[in-house]
Amino acid sequence: MPPDEAPLRERTRRAVQDRMTLAAIDLFVEQGYDATTVGQIAAAVGMSERTFFRYFSTKDDVLEHVSAHWRARVGADLAARPAAEPTWLAARRAFDGYVRETVEQGRALALLGVIYASPGLHGRHLLRLSRWTEAIAPALRARLDGTPDADFRTAVQAAVVVTCFEAARHAWVASGGESSLDELLDRAMESAARLLDGSA
């Protein structure tokens, strides 16, 4: 359901979650994830700790909120790509919104650095990557209807796409933002093109 068609109560809740999320990310980057308390996040948006728990069950749910938003967005964007477009190109273009908006917002690079540097956070991040594969799989599966081993090929394609996405983000963080995330993702996806299009 598009945001403007969601019930008012749902949109209001999502807006509050978004405010809390931005405040939390800024605190995670400034002082570290472990050092940031729920009370500090709530205070940053003028709310009580009790109010925070009306919107999120744990501090980590803030990061899941961000990931869930982008998983749904990229999955929808992939489903909307032209059916005749090569799979690898459609998958690459589906990430355009993510790349553009996260780079413009200026928080993703530092946040990913915090996540990669923390074993606990990184472990939960890897779990979220499996949810990325689930989010894009339906759109990939639709491109394989009527082909042999469609389910297996979908699983392989989704895993490759997400691996390319994550490899590009790792390289971006390692470069300190000097490399272009857009170009890194291009390179990663191009290297997988033959496999994704089933020609390998």
Results as ranks from 00 to 15, higher is better:
M1W: 14
P3E: 12
L8W: 03
R9S: 14
E10Q: 09
T12A: 14
R13F: 14
R14H: 14
A15F: 11
A15P: 05
M20I: 07
M20N: 09
A24N: 08
D26E: 15
F28N: 00
G32F: 08
T36W: 09
T36S: 09
G39N: 09
G39A: 11
I41L: 06
A42C: 12
A43Y: 10
A44Q: 12
G46Q: 08
G46P: 11
R50G: 14
R54F: 14
F56A: 03
D60F: 10
V62G: 10
H69Q: 09
D77V: 01
L78H: 11
L78C: 14
A80N: 10
P82Q: 01
A84N: 11
P86V: 04
W88E: 11
A90K: 07
A90C: 03
R93L: 12
A94W: 07
F95T: 00
G97Y: 05
V99G: 08
V103P: 04
Q105Y: 02
L112G: 04
L112K: 03
G113H: 05
V114C: 12
A117M: 05
L126N: 09
L126F: 07
L127C: 05
R128G: 15
L129G: 08
A135Y: 05
A135L: 04
I136G: 06
I136P: 07
I136L: 10
A142Q: 12
D145H: 11
G146F: 12
D149P: 05
D151V: 00
R153L: 11
Q157G: 13
V161F: 13
F165N: 00
E166D: 15
R169T: 05
R169K: 03
H170D: 13
A171D: 15
W172F: 13
A174E: 15
S175W: 10
G177F: 13
E178P: 09
E178D: 14
S180D: 15
D182S: 01
D182F: 12
E183N: 07
L184C: 02
D186S: 07
A188C: 07
E190R: 06
E190G: 13
S191T: 00
R194F: 08
L195T: 00
A200D: 15
